[in-house]
Structures are given as structure tokens and as C-alpha cells.
């Protein structure tokens, strides 16, 4: 998803979760829920489920990872995608195809008894269902975390909130929010810590990273419009193929040299099969909504116990334990004011 490849050109700086205390972060909900569905799985690679067969992987992720962030006094706002724009249809078709292929491969691997392969491929077959989304939103509400339904792109809505300083930054694994104008992007927010490498028994430490748009533009010496043009050459959700044979480094070189897509196409013999003017417009003026509610609530421990433990089969002692600890630490951080706020 998104212009991931741009990471070849820019590096984030490490940041501690405690540095994000009291800060509001708009979280790309789909991005994170897919992350949970891919990574939170049983030993055989299957999704976690309760006895009724309802998927709980994403709820487990939302509960424990959010709890960890709330403990640091981080204020999360989840932003859900709305109806995809016409331009994204091709990307969506591509993803559907990939999933179909993965499902076939999964069957084959199962027949062969290749459990290692099963685990890997299973991660690529999942889709978020309406029921999963409903459960996720319900849990967010019980955790006091507001969420917003974007009219189209969640990243665009999140970037809009950041640009207008309603939130401090956007948290996502993708870089699209920077194209949409978010001043700050946080990556690995829910991934940080010791993580097992896939298909190996090795562990790595994943750091939370911060990307500042202003620094990035300065370092690359690009204007915001040029950043978008460069991304279109590399390939975005709206033109996943980009330009054949043009990776991040080449795209960067072209834009640096010629300034705009038009000039690049005039001077270089490449083919861009995309309505780039329309894609630019999506990044510059995305469809967003002003109709949102950012009220942060308190963690409703009893409500969560009833939902997760009684209805979704979570262990009550463990859930209560993490929630009461979270609530206490969250309160302790949020009640403490900063001294400089009294000096202005």
C-alpha cells in the first residue's frame, strides 16, 4: 500500500514513545488493523478466534498495543477509510488478485504439509470484514479512543487533521500522509520493541521513527508539488505500476533535473500510463470531512470485560490487569501539566 518505496530516499529519526506523551496522533486504522491481522496469529498461522469462530486477532492487537500507547499518555485518533476513489479501483483489483493467488498458494502449501509456508502465505490472504470493523470500532469506543470515518482516503483525512494542527502527527507505515501534507509522520508506532523476524528465529529491535515533512523537503530539495510528482513516477495507490523501470532514485533524479512530470515526459523517453493531473489533484485537494468528533474518553474497564471476555473469549484476569494498569498510568501522565504551559 502506498508509496513505501520512498523509504529508499529518506530516513526517519528514532523517537521514544515517551516523547509522544500527551500528543494526539491520527492513526491510519486500516493500515494498523491489517498489520494486526497479519502478525497476531496462532502457531499454525491461523487467525485467533473465539469458540464461536469469530476473529479476534485484530481485537487483541487493538487492546494490548493501544494499551501500551495509552500508558504513555499518547492520544490516539483512529481514522477509517471511506469509499475508495475511482482512481484507486485498479489498485484494489490488484490487491484482490494478490489475495486470490495467496489463497491458492495456501491450499497447495497445506496439501504439501509445508507449515512454514502456510504461516507466511496465510498472512497475505486476510481481508477485513464488516464484522471485524464493527468490533474494532466498538472496542475503540470502550477504550476512550475517538475514531473518524473518512469520506475517502483515511490517510488524507489524517493528514488534514495534522496539517490543521488538530492532531500532532499521523501514524502509519505508509508515506502517503506526507504527500497529503501532514507535517509529521510516525512509523512503527505499534510495532516497536523486540520483534521476531519472519521465517527465522532471530529477533530485531524495531524503533519508532519520526519523519518531518519540512526536513524531508529541505533534504531532498523538492517543493511539495515535486514530492507528489516524484511519487507518481514511482507509483502510488492511484497508479500502482508507476513507470516501468523507474525506481525511487531515478524518479528523484528526473524530478530534480526537470522539475515536473510534464518536463520529465518531454525530455525522457518513458511512458506514464496514468492520469497524473487527476492523481496530483487527489493529493493536493483530497476529499475530507469537517464532520468529526475528537473527544477522548476514559477507559471503560467493565464495558471491555463484558465485550472481550464474555463475548469474545479473552482472559478476564489478563484484560483487567492490563486495563487497570493502563488507566492508572494514563491518568498519572495526563494529569501532570507542563511547566512551560504556564509561562505564555
Amino acid at each position: 500500500m502506498g508509496v513505501k518505496k520512498i523509504s529508499d530516499l529518506i530516513k526517519g529519526e528514532p523517537i521514544e514513545l515517551s516523547d509522544l506523551s500527551r500528543k494526539r496522533l491520527a492513526v491510519d486504522a486500516y493500515n494498523i488493523l491489517y498489520q494486526f491481522l497479519a502478525s497476531i496469529r496462532g502457531m499454525d498461522g491461523s487467525l485467533l478466534k473465539n469458540i464461536d469462530g469469530m476473529v479476534t486477532s485484530h481485537l487483541s492487537g487493538l487492546l494490548y498495543r493501544n494499551a501500551r500507547l495509552l500508558q504513555h499518555g499518547i492520544k490516539l485518533v483512529y481514522v477509517f477509510d471511506g469509499k475508495p476513489s475511482e482512481l484507486k479501483k485498479e489498485e484494489i483489483r490488484r490487491r484482490v488478485k494478490l489475495k486470490e493467488k495467496a489463497r491458492e498458494e495456501l491450499e497447495e502449501a497445506r496439501e504439501r504439509g509445508d507449515m512454514e509456508r502456510v504461516r507466511t502465505v496465510a498472512q497475505r490472504t486476510v481481508s477485513l470484514t464488516e464484522d471485524m470493523l464493527k468490533d474494532a470500532k466498538h472496542l475503540l469506543r470502550l477504550m476512550g479512543i475517538p475514531y473518524i470515518e473518512a469520506p475517502q482516503e483515511g490517510e488524507a483525512q489524517a493528514a488534514y487533521l495534522a496539517q490543521h494542527r488538530k492532531v500532532w502527527g499521523v501514524a502509519s507505515q505508509d508515506f502517503d500522509s506526507l504527500l497529503f501534507g501532514a507535517p509529521i509522520l510516525i512509523r512503527n508506532l505499534t510495532l516497536s520493541g523486540r520483534r521476531k523476524l519472519p521465517r527465522s528465529n532471530r529477533y530485531i529491535t524495531v524503533n519508532v521513527e519520526i519523519y518531518r515533512r519540512e526536513n524531508l523537503l529541505k533534504e531532498l530539495n523538492l517543493t511539495p508539488d515535486q514530492l507528489i510528482d516524484m511519487a507518481i513516477l514511482i507509483g502510488t495507490d492511484f497508479n500502482p505500476d508507476g513507470v516501468k523501470g523507474v525506481g525511487p532514485k531515478t524518479a528523484y533524479k528526473y524530478i530534480q533535473q526537470y522539475g515536473t512530470i510534464e518536463k520529465v515526459l518531454e525530455n525522457v523517453n518513458i511512458e506514464l500510463n496514468a492520469d497524473y493531473e487527476e492523481i496530483r489533484e487527489v493529493f493536493r485537494n483530497p476529499v475530507i470531512t469537517e464532520d468529526y468528533d475528537l473527544s477522548f474518553g476514559e477507559i471503560d474497564i467493565e464495558g471491555i470485560v463484558e465485550f472481550l471476555c464474555e463475548q469474545r473469549g479473552f482472559d478476564e484476569a489478563r484484560v483487567r490487569n492490563v486495563l487497570s494498569k493502563t488507566k492508572e498510568e494514563q491518568k498519572s501522565i495526563l494529569q501532570q501539566k507542563r511547566l512551560d504551559s504556564f509561562f505564555s
Binding site: 494542527r165 500532532w168 473527544s295 476514559e298 495526563l334 501539566k337 504556564f342
Partner: peptide, 23 residues
């Protein structure tokens, strides 16, 4: 030595906006 207080209410105004010093 100066120390900021802890204030009971943890809610902040819903229309809070970050300013330059926050970045």
C-alpha cells in the same frame, strides 16, 4: 525549583490546536 501541578481533569478542549512550540 519550579514544578507544574497535576490537574484532576484530564480532558482537554476538543478544539485544541497545536502551536509552533509543540513541534
Amino acid at each position: 525549583y519550579m514544578l507544574a501541578p497535576r490537574i484532576e481533569s484530564v480532558a482537554d478542549e476538543e478544539d485544541y490546536e497545536y502551536d509552533d512550540e509543540d513541534y
